[in-house]
């Protein structure tokens, strides 16, 4: 018995056209929904991180004159996708008086891996220091690295400070990328 006659599938020039149409249509049809999804997926890149404005943190008189640092929360309106939260803590800053009318501000976030640095008061030594509990980095009161080989790639991040009306301490609050040797503002 001979095998049943098969209708010929397209080959040659016609076959090429058919194959091209198949590939183009097949590709486009799937590309459309995928592209729409990817555009929505990439939306977070448009979102900017908060910060960059001067915020009133404290009054000058609450800062000890001996230069002991104090930690202050940064309170601002926070937007979380569709929700808006008025007056929420969005970060914290160490403030330290360096002269009668001069204040220095340091981010509490460790430049190494983003943990929160704590202040350790002097224990028999002359002054206290900053210490990061995650990877044991130590920083001086000015934020400079104290260890010979510090886990932190850079000194603590200082922030711009303005003393307004001789009493109000305003800080330009920003977050910085961790792990880099240079201070890079997070956008």
């Amino acid at each position: 018995m001979t095998p049943p006659e098969q209708p010929k599938s397209s080959d040659g020039r016609r076959g090429f056209i058919v194959k091209t149409i198949a590939l183009i249509c097949g590709g486009f049809s799937l590309l459309i929904p995928a592209a729409i999804g990817v555009v929505a997926f990439l939306n977070p890149l448009r979102q900017k991180s908060t910060g960059g404005d001067f915020i009133k943190l404290a009054s000058l008189e609450v800062l000890p004159e001996d230069g002991t640092p104090r930690k202050f929360p940064v309170v601002a309106d926070r937007t979380d996708a569709w929700n808006r939260f008025p007056d929420e803590p969005i970060g914290a800053v160490f403030l330290r008086r360096t002269a009668e009318n001069k204040v220095e501000a340091l981010q509490v976030v460790c430049p190494h891996a983003g943990c929160s640095v704590v202040y350790e008061a002097s224990a028999g030594e002359k002054t206290g220091k900053f210490f990061c509990p995650c990877h044991a980095a130590s920083f001086g009161l000015g934020g400079e690295r104290l260890d010979k080989t510090s886990p932190s790639p850079r000194d603590m991040d200082s922030l711009d400070v303005e003393v307004r009306n001789n009493t109000e301490v305003w800080v330009k609050f920003q977050n910085f990328q961790s792990g880099a040797a240079k201070k890079i503002v997070q956008t």
Binding site: V18, I21, A22, C25
Partner: peptide, 10 residues
């Protein structure tokens, strides 16, 4: 492939 698939993709 390719005749039916072409029709399908169109």
């Amino acid at each position: 492939w390719p005749d039916q698939i072409m029709r399908n993709t169109v």
